[in-house]
Design a protein around this nucleic acid. Structure first.
Lengths: 212, 212
DNA sequence: GTCTATAATTCGATAGAC
DNA sequence: GTCTATCGAATTATAGAC
């Protein structure tokens, strides 16, 4: 019982370092040995707490996805009971929470953003259980988009949401790899980036394939 | 001298299989041993012809980039001497050649598309010499975008081109992973996909941050 | 829960015969 | 150019003492 506190620290320490290294080097490019060296924990601790490298990755994904999805749904809740749905609000509810993590979480912010982007460009089979964590969330956003744009088909909204996701992923990876697009990680810069991304994709979403 | 023809076959066979496996499993997730097994060549042949795993990847990137960039520049040449630059044409010159590869190259088309997408989401340091292959091409497109949209700053055009790249990468990876977005790989489906992507991003590019 | 030691494979790369 | 054989290092994972 004395070591439970230490165990929690160990488990969290592994998760934190894993998130950084997985983000920087990808799943396949990350070795448990390089990971435990930086985390200063024992190799056996990884298998004791998580079981395997794949399950460790899965645990990191769950932790990150939970934070993002909660933040997105919280934003979405502000609007989903309104009679008239404003597209800009919904798009911002999708994009903003992810990017606002950067200034909110301090030095962990950039790492989280980077992992958030990189995990969505992992090859199969990793990508499969990354998608699983976000699928339900995407469906809810599609439902709202459907209400905001009732004369567009579900299929059309699906690939338009996919474009929004594409833009978000690229932005997150750029932030993680070079700090590009968001030179300073302060709140002001991030809000500017959010505003321009929202404006860009809203334009594309509003125009239906069937119109003009 | 008798074996030069066989050597060319070997070299190309390695490149072809490498392109597929690197696309499917990423650089770090691909092993030379799994590669030579599918290619039915000797492990030493890889080092003889390419030197190392990294140089093999680099060779695949160069072959792919050369084809894409040539096709894009050929399209661009149609418009760059015109007095008035039409934005739609330029965006299509950027997007279309990459996606048209899919129906043009037969069964190799989907693989090439997949690699083209996946190589741009590789972690550092691989991403570094992938970027190098496309950097000059991007600068030329930026120059044309500058002429089509003279009242937008270079910085603004840079992140807008980056959004176009993001959309293209995501589309290519989806094609490679599941055939999504382009259910059939026939020319007609691809043209429809090109048209809707072009329409989407053109809307976003035309609106300046300073306007409206 | 934490540790050492090690199993069992797999990795990229190379030497040297042909 | 192609091959076999192998080096040396790295990999994930586990068994078992504490």
């Amino acid at each position: 019982m004395v070591k439970i506190a230490a165990a929690i620290d160990t488990k969290e320490q592994i998760l934190n370092v894993a998130e950084r290294q997985f983000a920087e080097k990808g799943y396949a490019g990350t070795s448990l040995r390089g990971l435990i060296k930086e985390a200063e924990v024992n190799i056996a601790a990884v298998h004791y707490h998580f079981g395997s490298k794949e399950e460790l990755y899965s645990a990191v994904v769950r932790r990150v996805a939970q934070q993002i999805v909660n933040a997105q749904q919280q934003e979405l809740a502000k609007y989903e009971n309104q009679e008239h749905i404003c597209l800009e609000n919904i798009v911002e509810a999708f994009i903003a929470p992810t990017l606002r993590i950067i200034p909110q979480m301090g030095e962990m912010g950039v790492i989280r953003a980077h992992f958030m982007g990189s995990c969505r460009t992992e090859p199969l089979p990793i990508q499969q259980f990354v998608d699983r964590e976000f699928n339900e969330n995407h469906q809810r956003f599609l439902d709202i988009f459907q209400r905001a744009l009732p004369n567009q088909t579900r299929l059309e909204l699906e690939w338009k949401l996919d474009i929004v996701i594409a833009v978000l992923i690229r932005t997150l990876n750029q932030v993680g790899q070079s700090g590009k697009l968001i030179a300073e990680s302060d709140a002001e810069e991030v809000e500017i980036a959010i505003a321009r991304l929202v404006k860009f994709v809203v334009r594309g979403m509003k125009s239906s394939c069937l119109q003009e």
